[in-house]
Design a binder for these strands. Structure first.
Lengths: 205, 205
DNA sequence: TTTTTAAGAGAACAAACGTTCGCCAAGGTG
DNA sequence: CACCTTGGCGAACGTTTGTTCTCTTAAAAA
């Protein structure tokens, strides 16, 4: 169910408070944060959030709020980002229950690997690759890049930069590298989303 | 610093309570759980835990306890387990801040991969392999096993069972399989710790 | 042995906190 | 128009909860 602006504001505050403090906020603190003067209004809002399945209220207990979604996690980029901003940091389908600070403090997201073009780097189909959002990738780093032609597509390859040309190199001899000249980069035919900082595999491998 | 029995009991209760409820317990609840009749005794114990670095007390706040160690995580098996029990579920050096239920509800631990004998399965040196504790592994599964001779050693290999013989097969043509006959297994020269259920890689891969 | 320290009991108190009740304004709907 | 729902205010109340004091006992240190 959809969240009203105030409900969303409250939920985000609760999650942020939880991450910062290690326990949930009180009704009063929530009210103060979202600009409510009456606690009862906050309480009603919390009940709405409960009805919509975003949290659970434990009756009578101080700070008795139980978040349903994991408080800290790495969002999995489901569909290919089309417009701007490239990384929509909302409405992710899935959130990996992994503390992001394990991989670094910056903005992170995860990408599910589709093909076998990177098996040479120990990256298998189905793996979740953790990406740090940045446009400044160095030579030799594995990057997530979005190709705009012929159609929008996100791909994971090793980056090679040689005097202006940008090469996205698979780690599998069966695949050919993608080569982009200066003008291709300038015209936005390729755009680097970020660099790989980790990998999570679920299953028997 | 070392924990007294009661301190350890309290800390474990707090962690379990936190996992179950999503917020920390009250001083009273802790007292009830560990058999203290006086709250002040509990409070002093909490201060000891704080002094020893296991948690933080936020003064004046209800349920104002902040755990230092991650509440939910996967322990990393540091050194090779020598005696029984093979998996000591205490005093782990490191805990991965990953919700164990992501990989399964059973008992899990992680193992840091040392060599390159499993690169063919996309498992690189330095990777953290998540293992589900079980002695019943099926043919073709990747298992963590402990070899007792010539010296105790934990290894990760693909399991192959052929009428009584147990083969631990590397996924790298440069390495030879380990073959164990029925009597080797019976004499405990090889013991299966568990099967691989996931993998976590930290770094640029 | 005397002294000190650690660990807990029990009472008392002041905040912190959740919860309910009645009221009100805006907006849609018959 | 009259009616109902939604979303908010304000007051009041009763618990829940942290925190401090003094006292007791047993072990350790001197």
């Amino acid at each position: 169910m959809a969240l009203s602006p105030k409900e969303k504001e409250a939920l985000e505050f609760i999650e942020a408070y939880f991450v910062d403090n290690g326990f949930p906020p009180t009704v009063r603190e929530i009210g103060e944060a979202i600009g409510f003067t009456s606690k009862s209004s906050v309480y009603k809002l919390l009940r709405r959030l409960e009805a919509k399945g975003y949290l659970e209220i434990v009756p009578g207990e101080a700070r008795g709020l139980r978040l349903i979604r994991p408080a800290r996690g790495i969002p999995v980029l489901g569909k290919i980002p089309a417009g701007e901003p490239l990384i929509p940091y909302e409405d992710f389908e899935e959130v990996l229950p992994v503390d992001p600070s394990f991989f670094g403090e910056e903005k992170l997201f995860a990408l599910r690997v589709k093909g076998d073009s990177m098996v040479g780097a120990g990256i298998l189909p189905g793996d979740l690759v953790v990406i740090r959002v940045t446009e400044e990738a160095k030579n030799g780093e594995i990057v997530a890049a979005v190709l705009t032609e012929p159609e929008a597509e996100v791909t994971l390859k090793r980056l090679e930069l040689k005097d202006g040309t940008l090469v996205l190199k698979p780690e599998n001899p069966s695949y050919e590298p993608f080569v982009f000249e200066k003008e291709d980069v300038a015209r936005g035919r390729v755009k680097i989303l970020g660099v790989m900082v980790g990998l999570i595999r679920k299953g028997k491998g």
